[in-house]
Nucleic acid binder design. Structure first.
Lengths: 206, 206
DNA sequence: ATAAGCGTACCGACCGGTTGGTATGGTTGT
DNA sequence: ACAACCATACCAACCGGTCGGTACGCTTAT
């Protein structure tokens, strides 16, 4: 991710994100993450008390990187809140290029394995996903107001749904080996949002 | 799953589905699956040449069970194809009760870890997910014809999108620990389908 | 100037336990 | 008799984590 991650700690975080995204959490050994980072095991346990602690820190780093990229994206400057929401989805669709291990979600991958066995790691993944989702709350709420949809459903709920579709798209892409499957799903998501934000209120089902 | 799975093979498959759904594939040891099944390791390797082979067979069993349940569901008898599609989503929403390990998707969980390391297992998960998705293809195609939406997007693509939303809903539920988060997403999916199948063609975005 | 003192960063051999898988022998149904 | 079925004992490889030790830079006292 970072081209010249200076410290061993950063190199370990980046390596963990990459290795875990391609193999899952449990299958990624500490030794392999160290090898990928070009760092020894001693350095690993100097910076992190456990493998779990590394994953928690990596989830935070991953979410922060995503938040930063989105906050700096051009669509953020659009005047219409609905257009900003659609701009977000378009950006996520644009990101669907390259290897699966480079485009999928670290937190979504990890939480599938850890939700029942590691409460702290589960909470870190929840914070990463829901925290990132929440960056859309205000725009969605404004767009719903503008369309007379206020109260029809919760803005935060739609934010989370957007993340759910993205997560599901990744699973479909992994299952088929085709990134195009993920694009397809994001196109349906875009169509849903367009229908929501361009249809007259009486036509939107409860 | 089955109360009195007769053979050791069936008990192993059921145990694998349960254990893997709660811990993921890599973290589920053969010993633990055997313990859960009440069977020894000798029986395991008598019926399956490897852990991977068990997972492949379990994916098939899981998909077959889902297909069977859906084929027998009441909504299948509805006259309107669009109503059958919505009936499917309603059924999947009804299934969202109980422990996460009992309601989430085995194939979706496994493929996240195995897509890059085990081609055969990845293919089995693809067959499970996409095969199950395909049971909706005909109804979706008919509903699109009836609404003049033919050619707007692919019926199989919408079938896969439905599965993607369901998979993403599971991830959200695991991350938050709240099954209600999954319900929320399925409600949005239902609303999307209602908009698609009740809106005049000219109002549906490309 | 300099050396003692100390904290952070890092190394790599090592440990007990667990892993997927094997070898072998007994039991049961036909 | 014979094969399908299953239990016990076992193995080499690997796992996460520990530990004694080194390298080096920053204070601070002399």
């Amino acid at each position: 991710m970072a081209p010249h991650a200076a410290t061993a700690r950063d190199k370990l975080l980046d390596a963990a994100i990459h290795v875990v995204r391609s193999q899952g959490y449990a299958a990624s050994s500490v030794d392999e993450i160290c090898r990928e980072a070009g760092v020894t095991k001693g350095a690993f346990f100097h910076h992190f008390p456990s493998k779990e602690a590394l994953a928690i820190a990596a989830a935070g780093r991953f979410a922060a990187a995503a938040d930063t990229l989105c906050a700096a994206a051009p669509y953020r400057a659009l005047p219409d809140p609905a257009a900003r929401v659609l701009g977000y989805v378009a950006l996520r669709r644009d990101w669907l290029r390259g290897e699966l291990a480079e485009i999928t979600c670290f937190a979504g991958t990890v939480v599938q394995e850890a939700y029942a066995t590691s409460p702290a790691l589960r909470a870190a993944c929840e914070a990463a996903i829901c925290g990132h989702a929440a960056t859309l709350d205000a725009d969605i709420e404004a767009a719903m107001q503008a369309r007379g949809l206020a109260g029809r459903f919760s803005p935060a709920g739609l934010s989370r749904h957007i993340q759910a579709v993205i997560q599901g798209a990744f699973i479909l892409a992994k299952a088929t080996g085709e990134v195009a499957m993920a694009e397809e799903s994001l196109d349906h998501l875009r169509r849903y949002l367009e229908l929501l934000f361009t249809t007259k209120k009486r036509d939107v089902p409860e």
